[in-house]
Amino acid sequence: MNLTEFDKMRQGKPFNAIDLDLRLRREAARLACAKFNAHPSKGNLRHITRLFSSFDSLVIEPGFQCDYGTQIDVGERVFINFNCVFLDSANIHIGDDVLIGPGVHFYTVDHPREPEQRAQGECCARPIFIGNNVWIGGGAKVLPGINIGHNAIIGANVVVKRDVAENERYVG
């Protein structure tokens, strides 16, 4: 059975990000985000949320960007502030009652360290898990494969390079 690059990506295997199907999927997500960002309203929010694998009650401020949207699942009562970026080549799970500050970026995708492999578009992705009742300060960057436990607080402008335990305050 031949797997598509999309299948490989979703299964956590190395995949080629310059594959035509993946580029078209990213373009569709960009257009959905652009519709919402140009005219933010509950009606236009549907352009983004119909991409998501799941969501409940959700507020997203304008400036939201994602790669695919299909690998984002969001719990109840989640607030995503202005200008957030979700690079969702792997799953991004966001629990209930999560506050995400402005300009927060989630990066699930990673690239090879060898320049030849990078030039061929090869990459891999690892999921990000955000527990319940988490607050992520503005400008924070969450790297691939990170788990943030319930009730954690992530400081503004930090790069989260390791897992964060429940109830922990991570300030870089």
Rank of each mutant, 00 (worst) to 15 (best):
F79L: 13
F79H: 15
I80N: 00
F82P: 09
C84G: 09
V85D: 12
F86S: 08
F86G: 03
L87T: 13
D88F: 00
S89C: 15
S89R: 09
S89T: 13
A90L: 03
A90C: 07
N91V: 08
N91R: 12
I92A: 02
G95K: 00
D96R: 07
D96F: 00
D96L: 04
D97M: 06
V98C: 07
I100H: 06
I100W: 02
G101F: 03
G101N: 10
P102L: 00
G103H: 08
H105D: 12
H105K: 15
F106G: 00
F106Y: 05
Y107S: 09
Y107R: 10
V109F: 08
D110Y: 02
D110E: 13
H111W: 04
P112H: 10
R113M: 14
E114R: 05
E114Y: 00
P115T: 01
P115S: 02
E116I: 14
Q117M: 15
R118E: 02
A119H: 13
Q120L: 15
E122P: 04
E122G: 10
C123G: 15
C123F: 00
C123M: 15
C124Y: 12
I128N: 04
I130N: 07
I130Y: 11
G131E: 08
N133R: 13
V134D: 06
V134W: 05
W135D: 09
W135F: 10
I136M: 02
G137R: 04
G137Q: 06
G138W: 00
G138H: 08
V142K: 06
L143K: 10
P144M: 01
P144Y: 01
I146S: 01
N147C: 14
N147F: 13
N147T: 15
I148A: 08
I148Q: 00
H150W: 04
H150S: 12
H150V: 08
A152K: 08
I153A: 13
